Computed example of a mutant assay.
Amino acid sequence: MNKQVVIEVYGAEQICASCVNMPSSKETMDWLQAAISRKYPQQPFTIDYIDIYNPPEHEEKKVFAQRVIEEDLFYPVVLVEGKIVGEGNPRLKAIYSELEQFGYQPK
């Protein structure tokens, strides 16, 4: 593996109206972190949660948070190195596939 991948989870405290009975964005982030750590042990990655209604001062994150709101994307929206790989109820298979593009090897 050549690079520590950055995964971003954009979401909100309130569950998306179309995502009733789904885990919250933060719960999804915790679930992803655990699942990825198990699948790719000893292969570091960074996972960040960004609240779409209170994004950090980083301009790129603010712009994407606004896009989630304006385009009515289903959140949480999961990005791997800036590419959307999951929306609403993200699929591990899609996320794993993207990580493997960066050289991650499953256990």
Rank of each mutant, 00 (worst) to 15 (best):
M1N: 07
K3M: 09
K3H: 15
K3S: 12
V5S: 02
I7L: 07
I7Y: 05
E8C: 08
E8M: 14
E8F: 01
E8G: 03
Y10C: 08
Y10Q: 10
Y10W: 09
A12V: 07
A12Y: 07
Q14Y: 04
Q14E: 12
C19M: 15
V20T: 14
V20A: 11
V20D: 11
V20E: 10
N21K: 12
S25C: 04
S25D: 04
K26G: 06
K26V: 10
E27R: 08
E27N: 15
E27D: 10
E27G: 09
M29R: 15
D30A: 06
W31G: 08
L32I: 04
Q33Y: 03
A35R: 01
A35G: 02
S37D: 05
F45W: 02
T46F: 09
I47C: 02
I47A: 02
D48A: 11
Y49G: 06
I50Y: 06
D51C: 11
I52Q: 10
Y53M: 11
Y53V: 09
P55M: 11
P56N: 11
P56K: 04
P56E: 05
E57R: 13
E57M: 12
E59S: 05
K61E: 14
K61P: 05
K62M: 12
K62W: 06
V63N: 11
A65F: 11
A65I: 06
A65W: 07
Q66W: 00
Q66N: 06
R67W: 00
V68I: 14
F74S: 14
Y75F: 13
V77Q: 08
V77H: 07
V78G: 03
V78E: 02
L79A: 00
L79K: 11
V80K: 07
V80A: 05
E81S: 03
E81W: 00
G82D: 05
G82N: 04
G86E: 03
G88K: 04
N89V: 15
N89M: 13
N89D: 15
P90D: 05
R91C: 00
K93W: 03
I95H: 09
I95V: 12
Y96M: 02
S97P: 00
S97C: 00
E98T: 04
E98H: 06
L99D: 03
L99P: 01
Q101S: 14
Q101N: 14
F102N: 04
Y104W: 00
Y104M: 01
Q105I: 05
P106G: 04
P106Q: 04
K107F: 06
